[in-house]
Amino acid sequence: MQRVSLLLLVLLSAMMIILGKADQVMFESLRVSVTDTAAPLLDIASRPLATLEALADRARDLVAVYRDNARLTEENERLLRWRQAALSLASENTELRGLLKLAPVPPASFVTARVIGNTGGAYVRNLMVNAGSEHGVARGQAAITGEGLVGRMAEVGSRAARVLLITDLNSRIPVIVEGARLRAVLTGDNSDRPALRYLDTVSGIKIGDRVVSSGEGGIFPPGLPVGVIASLEGEAPRVEPYVELSRVEYMRIVDYGLADGLPKPVQPAPRVGRR
């Protein structure tokens, strides 16, 4: 009897895998409700480890305190000079916008969220955060840190949500390479360095060129820092993200007012550019 039920369950699991692949939407609401239920527990559970890591960081910092101090002082001076440049550029910008009668950029609202879970797979790259629709998070919104783009909100529950990282296999971000002004799509492949695909040409791209979001498709606003070109070998240039994705603890989920641009996943067959 137990053997029969065991075999039945094996078959059921196999069926679920196939169904889940064919119809992405079917399990989304189940996943969202499970995530929502588990979120408070995961939130509490991830804090001790985060505290330990903070302590380890603190210890490391203590060891390097003199060296870091010198470096930070120098960086501070440099940044203060940049601040002056930025202020004068900002005022020049406002004047020029006024001259062109450019429509003002609407202010973006954001929610700060904490990472409470991580996938344990080499095959999926996403994070679970403790902010959901009751905090104003919606599908398609950008998740950023001070360094740059982290990913895009994929599944949103009421208390928790899932961020699809830019390195995930399903992630497609329209970007532009700043030096050569070339448009491309940043395509994740579950490695640490996503690839640039759909480039018109590779010439003009140098290692170290900044890659930012291009704003195409109305999914993200233009100009969000994504990463730098790290390698030109292989079939596609590879981008080193600005954000250290394995160390993200807090991120901002920003509503640029463009969230409607992301189409809902269509049933049943998967297509290029799904989600």
């Binding site: 065991l6 369950l9 059921l12 196999a14 895998i17 889940g20 499970v34 879970g117 996938t119």
Partner: peptide, 28 residues
């Protein structure tokens, strides 16, 4: 028992973002 293995595997898949049923299948 198998029923619990299935549920635990499914729970892990749903929380971790893996295809639902994959861990359940492996545990079973």
């Amino acid at each position: 028992p198998p029923a619990l293995l299935f549920l635990v595997g499914l729970l892990q898949d749903l929380l971790a973002g893996a295809p639902p049923g994959a861990t359940a299948l492996i545990l079973l």
